[in-house]
Design a binder for these strands. Structure first.
Lengths: 342, 342
DNA sequence: GCTTTTTACGAAACCCATTTCGAAAAACAC
DNA sequence: GTGTTTTTCGAAATGGGTTTCGTAAAAAGC
């Protein structure tokens, strides 16, 4: 088709050498004014763009790493990105940040773009839709070419690579147990997240904990995959029914919305209702009463994931066994839960 | 020094041709098992990494753009990044996101890294420290090489390039006027930001408005450059003194902290104290009472800045006049201000 | 008018990996 | 043992710029 215009093309057009063209475009004193003018004019007219790879071929090679996150407006992922960026920079890598916007299609497009781009490694947290569809073939080319991949937070068991996650099951278990120990008996789960592995794991942890404490699991208390627009209404219904004394929010927004809704209904927190939520972003600290939340240590997770990737890149595939690093979570106790009388 | 290991180096070491080495490393069937093994082993041992620019020279050139932001944990900048990313992606560019962390030194390091990297354009919002030191020489190389630069939000008048900003003076003026019209007379300014141009402009707008309404400017009511750790104490002092009936926060955190402090002191909002803050992030909506804030339309600003940059890149420097696009701000009225009886 | 200097440009090397094609050597068939 | 196929490898082209160095022509010097 219409191949990109190269120096040679311009050179042929004017029947000069490409060194002349190169010098003319770089405004070298070696080239006469008249020659420069016509070449520059021609280049401008035909929108000549030098091939940056060719230019950089002569310079020090610059290493870069692709990072795919579902949503940068999510504070947790912003933290991860911060950590990733720090480590990559310390090690002389550029970060090519890409945002999938929770869309499978976008994620595929990004991988295609990155594949032909110059990346030495890839960090990924799956889009919600990708988790739901459970399609991960678009990552295979990287494995084939030998570009190391490290997944973090939203990982897939289907992919054989290094991973950094939290123990979602255990964390949910502990949070639930904390609620039970503080006297709560009817604990609801509220979530916006869809069919992600982490949602299933968290709900598993919750269920196991109830079971171990002899509490019956009630499906009617589990509100998964709530539509963002409907969440407030649903929570209002739930709280008005008076059937619950605690809420476990699987992400920050669920917890905060529950808290604000309870406030508006005049429900006393934590006396009548305890709330714990995953993800310790900005909100839990600032809402009133402040919200007990679980820190997933996003910054640290980013650091660890980036570190693992850098190691993989530098060792260049000698080690063949993949490791999954599990980062400890921390429950930040605030005003939305009762103190345990230990 | 120790130049990077190239295919030729390995070839010389084994006295074979570099095509053999290349094929061996790519696990080609054309190469015998024994030859492959020893070459791969050697490459691994000496950490051979192919030059990606050389590889990509043969592929379609991939375009990328550098973006420097001061802090990704700031919701406003996260919004900008979202907008930037969308436009760049739509136009087939990669985004190389870099975080200066408000540090001049880091910003300089980033520009050096990007300079030798393959970027076709640069988007920048200055670090706080850079604004304070007022040193911007590290951007000059880009202008010399002809790599277009677009600044957004935290811009510098010293640099001749395209810019996208809000009208900080006017916005502060309008906010102040809104407070005055709603009956406030003693309006304090609270800010964490240091010597940034935007701080000066905002305070200018505030001052002008007071002047035009015949209110004397009191330096003791302007709290610039507050230390993050001291902010709460300072605000507490200010509010306890009972000398103010309104606060203009130059950024979200200042506004929210003021609001929470007022709450804890039992000061009624907005009856006894009105608050408006810049930057409409997540917090203003979720605190109680909710906080009137000024949306700077981060996402849109990102889109516009990226669009300007892409245009510059594609036209390749034919247009020589630089334009500054001013984005309209919007005041989102919430519960922290009194309604105007218009 | 002849020498020297300057100007203007071209040929070729260089950056580094991939890939095509040709050829030598080894393996196999008959 | 001769012919054929397969295996294994190398030379050279390719991609698109930059840069060095050499040289012819034009300008300047005396």
């Amino acid at each position: 088709m219409k191949r990109k215009l190269s120096l040679d093309d311009i050179a042929k057009h004017f029947k000069v050498s490409k060194s002349t063209v190169s010098k003319a475009l770089n405004d070298s004193h070696e080239i006469s004014r008249r020659t420069k003018e016509k070449i520059v004019a021609y280049a401008k007219e035909h929108k000549y763009r030098p091939n940056l790879n060719a230019i950089n071929l002569r310079k020090e090679p610059s290493l870069s790493v692709g990072v795919i996150i579902p949503n940068i407006l999510n504070y947790f992922f912003a933290q991860v990105i911060s950590g990733v960026e720090k480590i990559l920079n310390d090690n002389g890598y550029n970060m090519i940040a890409c945002i999938s916007n929770e869309s499978y299609k976008k994620e595929v497009a990004i991988t295609q773009m990155l594949r032909k781009g110059a990346i030495s490694g890839l960090l990924v947290s799956l889009a919600e839709e990708t988790g739901r569809l459970d399609k991960i073939e678009h990552f295979e080319p990287f494995f084939n070419i030998g570009i190391p991949v490290v997944m973090f937070d939203r990982v897939s068991t289907k992919l054989q690579c290094d991973k950094v996650t939290i123990d979602d099951t255990k964390t949910a278990y502990n949070a639930t147990e904390h609620l039970i120990k503080s006297g709560c008996k009817r604990i609801a789960v509220v979530s916006l997240l869809g069919d992600l592995e982490i949602s299933r794991l968290r709900i598993n942890g919750y269920s196991q904990c109830l079971k171990n404490h002899g509490i019956d699991l009630e499906q009617s208390l589990i509100f998964e995959k709530l539509e963002k627009s409907l969440m407030e209404v649903e929570i209002k219904k739930l709280l008005s029914s008076g059937k619950v004394d605690a809420i476990l929010g699987l992400e920050e927004e669920a917890g905060v919305t529950s808290l604000l809704t309870a406030n508006s209904l005049g429900i006393k927190i934590p006396e009548e209702l305890s709330i714990i939520c995953f993800t310790n972003g900005i909100l839990p600290k600032y809402v009133r009463p402040s919200l007990t939340s679980i820190s997933q240590h996003g910054y640290y997770m980013g650091e660890r994931a980036a570190k693992q990737l850098v190691e993989r890149i530098e060792q260049n595939g000698s080690e063949k066994t993949f490791k999954t690093e599990v980062i400890k979570t921390t429950m930040i106790e605030r005003e939305s839960t009762k103190l345990l009388s230990t």
